Computed example of a mutant assay.
Amino acid sequence: MPAHIIAIAIGMVLDRLIGDPPNWPHPVKWLGTTIGNLTKLLNKGRMRTVKGGVLWLLICIGTFVLVIWFISIAYRLNIFAGITAEALLIAAGLAQKSLRDAALLVYEPLQSGDIKEAREKLSWIVGRDTEKLDESAISRAAIETVSENTSDGITAPLFWAFLLGAPGLWLYKAVNTLDSMIGYKDDRYREFGKISARMDDLFNWIPSRITGVLIILCTPNEGGRPVKQRISGWLRDAKRHMSPNSGYLEAATAWQLNIQLGGSSTYRGILSERAVLGPPVVANMRHIRSTIHQMQVVSWIFWLLCTVIGVVFYAIT
């Protein structure tokens, strides 16, 4: 069995048990600092799309090569050192526990009736304005975040880890971090972040759709609707979403939990109207826990599916 498949299994367990301790150094923070510094240097003057492409190449190729170099040194020492180093890098690139914990920080004050604290904790994980949200709107925002990040934070990194090991996972993390920092359509980043946004769409295309299928087929269905109806609604609504990938996750969650997602939100005081997804049933705090459970089930099934495919591929080649 390839060493990186063993490392991925260990990394999954470590992420589930330990997650990202807040006081530990994290490679994403280093990526963010580097991207921020280079953006200040490059995002000005003419040819901003080209400069944004240069930034993308520097960050992504640099990250990929650096991780290859690091784990190569570890594997040269011995197989155990290599697997350990790769497993730690993989665990650091996954977000199952941190996503669960972040959602529970919103759920728990809602459960105790402290809507003010729930709004504050929600503001830590979403970009929308939270000051005036009621229970339903808070729940919807948390559900959408967990649903979208099931792919961004777990299954997509796993997908690239199975293809290319820890270097592949961190190549994806570099792509995703670039998009989250500069992949906007405002005046400041429209040209400079264009390539980063397009590449993030490309890197997420396959994992997001596989994850959506697993949500529909492998997690509890709370609406009692037949699978054919849920698949039809999922595929229809996913295409209405402004993101070519996030729609396949949020629409799957909406139809599987029998709730409505999307609609109106405000960002820095500006109203944003997004496509309405799913049946016309209002979300509530209970659905936050359902979405956490859904995320955990899909994460482990995705890992198992990729492991089986990887082992079979290794056995026949």
Results as ranks from 00 to 15, higher is better:
residue 234 W to E: 04
residue 220 P to D: 07
residue 256 Q to P: 02
residue 238 A to L: 12
residue 240 R to S: 08
residue 247 G to M: 07
residue 200 D to S: 07
residue 211 T to R: 03
residue 257 L to K: 15
residue 238 A to C: 13
residue 216 I to F: 01
residue 233 G to C: 13
residue 231 I to C: 11
residue 205 W to K: 11
residue 219 T to G: 00
residue 223 G to K: 04
residue 222 E to F: 14
residue 229 Q to L: 14
residue 228 K to T: 14
residue 225 R to L: 15
residue 210 I to C: 02
residue 204 N to K: 00
residue 218 C to D: 06
residue 203 F to I: 09
residue 223 G to I: 09
residue 222 E to P: 00
residue 218 C to Q: 05
residue 253 T to E: 09
residue 229 Q to V: 13
residue 225 R to A: 15
residue 203 F to S: 12
residue 215 I to H: 06
residue 219 T to I: 04
residue 250 E to N: 05
residue 223 G to V: 08
residue 251 A to P: 12
residue 235 L to R: 14
residue 238 A to Q: 04
residue 212 G to T: 11
residue 231 I to M: 06
residue 254 A to N: 11
residue 240 R to V: 04
residue 238 A to R: 05
residue 246 S to K: 03
residue 210 I to T: 02
residue 227 V to R: 12
residue 256 Q to E: 13
residue 242 M to F: 14
residue 209 R to W: 01
residue 223 G to A: 11
residue 254 A to F: 13
residue 221 N to R: 04
residue 249 L to W: 06
residue 229 Q to R: 13
residue 240 R to N: 03
residue 228 K to S: 14
residue 253 T to H: 08
residue 253 T to M: 11
residue 207 P to R: 01
residue 213 V to G: 03
residue 234 W to C: 12
residue 230 R to P: 04
residue 249 L to T: 02
residue 245 N to V: 08
residue 233 G to W: 12
residue 226 P to T: 08
residue 222 E to V: 04
residue 232 S to Q: 14
residue 229 Q to T: 13
residue 202 L to N: 08
residue 241 H to W: 10
residue 206 I to H: 08
residue 245 N to I: 10
residue 231 I to F: 14
residue 219 T to E: 03
residue 210 I to L: 04
residue 224 G to A: 07
residue 213 V to N: 04
residue 243 S to N: 11
residue 223 G to H: 07
residue 249 L to N: 07
residue 246 S to N: 13
residue 233 G to I: 13
residue 213 V to R: 01
residue 207 P to L: 04
residue 210 I to D: 01
residue 247 G to Y: 03
residue 252 A to H: 05
residue 246 S to T: 05
residue 221 N to Y: 05
residue 230 R to K: 15
residue 237 D to V: 10
residue 226 P to V: 11
residue 202 L to I: 15
residue 205 W to R: 11
residue 213 V to A: 12
residue 227 V to L: 15
residue 225 R to T: 11
residue 227 V to I: 15
residue 217 L to Y: 12
residue 250 E to M: 15
residue 202 L to T: 15
residue 210 I to S: 00
residue 247 G to L: 07
residue 226 P to C: 08
residue 246 S to R: 01
residue 232 S to D: 13
residue 236 R to T: 11
residue 211 T to N: 13
residue 235 L to S: 07
residue 223 G to N: 12
residue 224 G to S: 09
residue 240 R to F: 03
residue 213 V to S: 05
residue 212 G to W: 12
residue 223 G to L: 10
residue 235 L to Y: 05
residue 223 G to Y: 11
residue 236 R to C: 03
residue 236 R to L: 02
residue 240 R to M: 02
residue 244 P to I: 01
residue 248 Y to M: 00
residue 244 P to A: 03
residue 252 A to T: 02
residue 218 C to L: 14
residue 227 V to G: 03
residue 202 L to H: 06
